[in-house]
Design a protein around this nucleic acid. Structure first.
Lengths: 450, 450
DNA sequence: ATGGGTTGGTCAAAGGTCGC
DNA sequence: AGCGACCTTTGACCAACCCA
């Protein structure tokens, strides 16, 4: 049911292992502030998952951690609520807090509400204005360490230890309309965090020597390299030395690498792994070049609006150069700069936003050759990332600007599509006139009806 | 009444003239009487409630007395409002009172209004005439002990972070901007309303005989036909008679009509009129076929997922037919159905949403050949419509679903772009092989570098 | 049992909405 | 252009519950 929460082999597990073994990847955290000793980003993001499986199992953990934390006597006289600085009435969900914040937190969790801040996501939360922005109040609850798993969710059928109705037993019928899921809000953040971490892993992989494969199918069916980056050798050839004009060989090399990384990236999505090979192929074929293009311009160091710069220092200039110009092929780099690179810079995308945007693009229900059952699944998946993207954007800049940023970003898909079409045309020309041999792996990935 | 398009006749002016039922908003909401020295909080309670020696005086230092007063259960059955003797709905601000007086008191406090009595300041206040004198009603509120301290300011801002509308949001137009509770909302609403009205005019024009023009430039520089639809004859040839398979001539006829309408539609945007002819041409050339396509599928009566039906009953089927198939041209109608028509239906777009979506698409800063200064202007304009579109969508279905609908809609631009590219390719083939003569007007509008 | 802490549940009274 | 019936949200209070 929940991709991040299933028992084994999930992305979450793999990330967990990877991080445990090798330390966290560099990632840009959008959460600032917080002298809070309890990290809830990595460690507890996994622990949230226990909400649907913890206490009912034969867990030798007698009581949740909040109990241990708070088992020391009552809250000291005059202690204040960690959320709003009102007078605390006790330790609730692991944190000294007032009745209001306690109830607010529980209500938000059980009703799975999602709030969005109108401003910058850093509204003040105190006794007097705690009700003004629910997004920031809930954020503060999480920040100070309120723990959702202290909640006795009805998800656990075992109602042995549930608190029944205090007044009336009006359980109308046994019709169970309960969703029994973790709250949406947390899920959004979870999605963003995971994508951002994977994005970091991709950047690591970009520095490594990537093992050869025999073809796309081979790549699709082998284990994901992103969790083995520490086992891979760093490729010294692609370290930056100096800026120099890219040759066709540079471009070819980066194309191959990026397409390989695209497949490794795709495999980090649990839902993708569950598709059949045919649909996997369809999705990746539909997206590989876009992946290539987007990463190229997003990660290009900013040397002005007329240069796309690769990691190793090779650059493409706006004015088509002899080296990268093939007869019969229309130059496409001008558009990549004007319609993708420059707008990206103007929009000031964060890494998290970029990562979530790519995921939303990847799960394209209109991808050519996608089977009908996959279409609906992919559509749902895309919606997840769209929601995540919106949350990610509006958290920082508020709704009114966020709506425009989100909209401008999504409308870039038109330009991307345009550039893709031109690229495909060029590849057909190359194929036809044999004036440049396209790598078979790239060809397999980029040409429709391959 | 015949209207020529004048330099300074804005769209709003023309709509007003055309529809003649759009009254200007009243801007005269002047605060009445500003010389009353009574302040609402301290001054007034001092002068009014001390005279009465209200019970709340003794203990309001620590926390509001209403809590203790009202902590005993419900207001007794049949208790009356202390202000107006209507039936009390509970203890509000420390006093048994009715809903009306409760709301009146809060409104008065938060808006910091000051009233003046027309008489002697001792008007009767009861259920029947409680609204007659607001000064005396407010006085009575204070007199019976309503306590401003019971107000929790700042207010809970549901509208800021709500996840969905309480019920159904009605669109209220034409109110003054003084309140400014949600200023951008009102502005958005105006945008939406205008676009929706223009959309209606387009539908009227579609039924009429459209005068011939010599070319795109001629069409761009003549007065806008949309405000003269009543002067145009209805075209009886295009009224619906029966369903029949479309011929190439049908398609050709509708293409020409729709492109003409596109230009008339474009001219309704004030900002568009202010662009130079070159940029006007760029925008309309970039969008004309999309306009054609979108209207075709959106307004196609629903005869299942395999038919696009024109107004006159001509229909295109999914399986390419002899009549509409030209050698060398790839069939494009399958994609129009699968990627545009069916998704539109699934998204359940309203006319307003559709109209706003088109405006956002039209103002495309990446349109080919658009001049640099126009780009930024067009970008800003698009943002306006993006905001409007989001408002329009979320008004009905709330934010979480709205984010996804908005996102899915905007991502359709990729498919639209794709279909456009195929279409252009087909037109080039036609041009090349001369197997079908494209109308020069359409050719001028649809082919790049025309 | 008992008592002091948690939990979830309750509902009067806050503020918000929108047809009238 | 304000009114108020009706709505959602809040949080003080309370019963159920869990350990020492």
């Amino acid at each position: 049911m929940h991709m991040f929460y299933s028992m084994n082999g999930t992305l979450a597990d793999q990330l967990q292992n990877h991080l445990a073994n090798y330390g966290p990847p560099m990632m840009n955290s959008q959460r600032d502030g917080g002298e809070d000793p309890r990290m809830y980003m990595n460690g507890s993001s996994a622990s949230v998952s226990t909400s649907n499986g913890s206490s009912s199992m034969g867990n030798d953990q007698k009581f949740p951690s909040y109990k241990r934390m708070a088992q020391r006597r009552k809250v000291p006289e005059g202690e204040l609520c960690a959320v709003c600085s009102d007078l605390a009435t006790g330790y609730h969900y692991g944190v000294a807090s007032c009745n209001g914040c306690k109830t607010f937190f529980r209500r938000t969790i059980v009703s799975e509400q999602t709030f969005i801040c109108q401003y910058n996501g850093n509204c003040d939360v105190n006794k007097n204005i705690r009700c003004a922005c629910r997004h920031c109040r809930f954020n503060k609850c999480l920040l100070v360490g309120m723990d959702a798993k202290a909640l006795q969710l009805p998800a656990i059928q075992n109602d042995r230890d549930r608190i029944g109705p205090t007044k009336k037993v009006k359980m109308s019928s046994g019709s169970d309309d309960e969703q029994a899921t973790t709250p949406h809000r947390l899920q959004d953040q979870e999605i963003i965090d995971q994508l951002t971490q994977v994005e970091g892993l991709c950047q690591e992989l970009r520095r490594c020597i990537i093992p050869e494969v025999t073809g796309v199918t081979h790549a699709l069916t082998s284990p994901c390299l992103l969790f083995e980056t520490t086992d891979l050798k760093v490729d010294t050839n692609i370290m930056f030395k100096e800026l120099y004009p890219a040759s066709m060989n540079d471009i070819r090399m980066w194309n191959i690498r990026e397409m390989r990384i695209c497949i490794e990236w795709a495999k980090t999505f649990d839902i993708y792994q569950r598709l059949n090979l045919f649909d996997q192929f369809a999705l990746v074929r539909n997206f590989a070049f876009a992946f290539n293009l987007l990463n190229r311009v997003f990660y290009s160091p900013d040397h002005g609006p007329d240069k796309i710069v690769f990691q190793n220092g090779a650059f493409i200039m706006r004015q088509p150069q002899q080296q990268v110009q093939l007869s019969g092929c229309r130059p496409i780099y001008t558009r990549q700069m004007d319609e993708i690179m420059i707008p990206f810079r103007k929009l000031q995308l964060s890494v998290s936003e970029f990562a979530t945007f790519k995921a939303a693009l990847f799960f394209n229900p209109d991808a050519l050759d996608l089977s009908a059952p996959a279409k609906t699944e992919v559509f749902e998946e895309r919606n997840k990332y769209l929601g995540g993207l919106f949350t990610c954007i509006t958290q920082k800049i508020g709704i009114p600007s966020g709506v425009q940023k989100y909209g401008s970003l999504l409308m870039m898909t038109a330009s991307i599509q345009n550039i893709l079409a031109q690229n495909e045309e060029n590849m057909q020309v190359m194929e036809l006139f044999k004036n440049w041999e396209v790598d078979p792996f790239v060809k397999e990935l980029c040409m429709k009806r391959a």
